[in-house]
Amino acid sequence: MLSDPAKGVVAMIAACMMWGLSSLYYKLLSDVPALDVLSHRMIWSLIFFGVVLAVQRRLTEVIRVLNTRRSFLRLALAALMIGANWGLFIWAIQIGQITQSSLGYYIFPLVAVVIGRVVFGEQLSNMQWLAVGLAAAAVALLTAGLGVLPWIALTLAVTFGIYGLLKKQLAAGPVVSVTAEALLLAPIAVTILLQTHHNGGTALGGDLKTFLLLMMSGPITAVPLILFSYAARRLNMTTVGLLQYLNPTLQFGCAVVIFAEPFGRWHGLAFGMIWAALALYSGAALRQDRARRRAARAAAVSGTVV
Score class of each variant (00 low, 15 high):
Gly116Glu: 11
Gly116Lys: 06
Arg117Met: 07
Arg117Asn: 06
Val119Asn: 11
Val119Ser: 15
Gly121Leu: 12
Gly121Ala: 10
Gln123Ala: 14
Ser125Phe: 13
Ser125Asn: 14
Asn126Trp: 15
Asn126Lys: 14
Gln128Cys: 14
Gln128Thr: 09
Gln128Ala: 10
Trp129Asp: 13
Trp129Asn: 15
Leu130Glu: 04
Leu130Trp: 07
Ala131His: 06
Val132Lys: 04
Gly133Trp: 10
Ala135Phe: 05
Ala135Gln: 02
Ala137His: 11
Ala137Gln: 05
Ala137Phe: 12
Ala138Cys: 15
Ala138Asp: 07
Val139Arg: 00
Val139Pro: 00
Leu141Ser: 12
Leu141Asn: 06
Thr143Ser: 01
Thr143His: 05
Thr143Leu: 00
Ala144Glu: 00
Ala144Lys: 02
Ala144Val: 01
Gly145Ile: 01
Gly145Pro: 03
Leu146Phe: 02
Gly147Tyr: 14
Val148Thr: 15
Leu149Phe: 07
Leu149Glu: 00
Leu149Ala: 05
Pro150Val: 11
Pro150Tyr: 12
Trp151Pro: 10
Leu154Gln: 08
Leu154Trp: 06
Leu154Glu: 05
Thr155Ser: 13
Thr155Glu: 07
Leu156Ser: 00
Leu156Tyr: 04
Thr159Cys: 13
Phe160Asp: 02
Gly161Phe: 02
Ile162Pro: 04
Tyr163Trp: 10
Gly164Ile: 10
Gly164Pro: 09
Leu165Lys: 09
Leu166Glu: 05
Leu166Gln: 01
Lys167Leu: 13
Lys168Glu: 08
Lys168Trp: 02
Leu170Glu: 11
Ala171Cys: 04
Ala172Leu: 05
Gly173Arg: 01
Gly173Asn: 04
Gly173Val: 05
Pro174Glu: 01
Pro174Asp: 04
Pro174Met: 05
Val175Phe: 09
Val176Phe: 06
Val176Glu: 15
Val176Gln: 04
Val176Ile: 12
Ser177Val: 02
Val178Cys: 08
Thr179Leu: 03
Ala180Tyr: 00
Ala180Thr: 02
Glu181Gly: 03
Glu181Met: 01
Ala182Ile: 03
Leu183Asp: 02
Leu183Gln: 10
Leu183Arg: 08
Leu184Cys: 13
Leu185Phe: 15
Leu185Asn: 07
Leu185Gln: 11
Pro187Phe: 10
Ile188Asp: 05
Ile188Ser: 11
Ala189Val: 12
Val190Ala: 14
Thr191Pro: 12
Thr191Gln: 13
Thr191Tyr: 15
Thr191Asn: 12
Leu193Thr: 11
Leu193Lys: 10
Leu194Arg: 02
Leu194Cys: 14
Gln195Asn: 10
Thr196Arg: 14
Thr196Asn: 13
His197Tyr: 07
His197Glu: 15
His197Ser: 13
His197Pro: 09
His198Cys: 08
His198Arg: 09
Asn199Phe: 11
Asn199Met: 10
Asn199Ser: 09
Asn199Gln: 06
Gly200Cys: 05
Thr202Ser: 11
Ala203Tyr: 07
Ala203Met: 04
Gly205Ala: 02
Gly205Tyr: 06
Gly206His: 06
Asp207Arg: 08
Leu208Asp: 01
Phe211Lys: 03
Phe211Glu: 00
Leu212Asn: 07
Leu212Gly: 09
Leu212Tyr: 07
Leu213Glu: 04
Leu213His: 04
Leu213Ile: 00
Met216Val: 00
Met216Tyr: 03
Ser217Met: 00
Gly218Tyr: 00
Pro219Lys: 01
